[in-house]
């Protein structure tokens, strides 16, 4: 009986080991700081409130723990506020302190990106800042694509161009649409 139990335990251990290997291969996404800074670069400093609320303050969705020791509390007219560098915590001291460094893509993350891109492209100041440098003489797809993909990604650009080939031949594609499309695309977030 005892031998049977040992054999059974050994078998369970063996199959457990074989079937539930723990190595995980996950796409390495940029964290809230990377995503937030890129969006600020594209849409301009006037959009900081939106980016802060939707990206910087969401370490659990985008990854990137906060550092409570990076911040200081100061008195202001309306009461008190926390000042500090980009690593400061927005709330809940400990849960943000221990947030993961890298977070894989998830429906929550995709949703959050869609939301922030929508909000940014709806705000006139943000939209204007993003599109002010676009050269109308040049290919608008590439010009706007390069806001989010400043370096490389030639194959992806080619795929986008091909997808819009028929449409762009007939009429120019709405810049706001392109901006939102590239903003919501996933690859620029991958590091």
């Amino acid at each position: 009986m005892r031998a049977l139990r040992t054999v059974f335990t050994l078998m369970m251990l063996f199959f457990n080991h074989v079937l539930w290997s723990q190595t995980q291969v996950q796409t390495r996404y940029g964290d809230r700081l990377f995503v937030g800074e890129l969006l600020l670069r594209v849409f301009g400093p006037d959009c900081k409130t939106i980016v802060e609320k939707e990206v910087f303050n969401k370490p659990h969705i985008f990854g990137g723990p906060c550092d409570p020791y990076s911040q200081r509390l100061v008195k202001v007219k309306e009461g008190y506020k926390t000042v500090g560098p980009r690593e400061k915590c927005s709330e809940s001291f400990f849960s943000q302190y221990r947030a993961d460094l890298i977070v894989e893509n998830s429906p929550l993350r995709s949703g959050a990106i869609a939301k922030v891109c929508q909000s940014l492209s709806q705000k006139k100041a943000c939209l204007n800042h993003a599109l002010k440098g676009i050269d109308k003489e040049k290919d608008s797809i590439e010009e706007i694509f390069r806001l989010f993909y400043p370096i490389g990604h030639e194959r992806l650009l080619g795929e986008f161009k091909m997808a819009f080939e028929d449409v762009s031949r007939k009429k120019s594609i709405d810049h706001k649409f392109l901006l939102k499309l590239f903003c919501q695309s996933e690859e620029w977030q991958i590091l």
Binding site: H17, S21, Q22, T23, Q24, V25, Q26, T27, R28, I102
Partner: peptide, 19 residues
């Protein structure tokens, strides 16, 4: 941190090819 591959150090003998 650099690649996103979270290796299971204890699964070396009986795991799949890539592991």
């Amino acid at each position: 941190f650099l690649t996103g591959i979270n290796l299971d150090l204890d699964g070396k003998d009986l795991s799949s090819g890539h592991e």
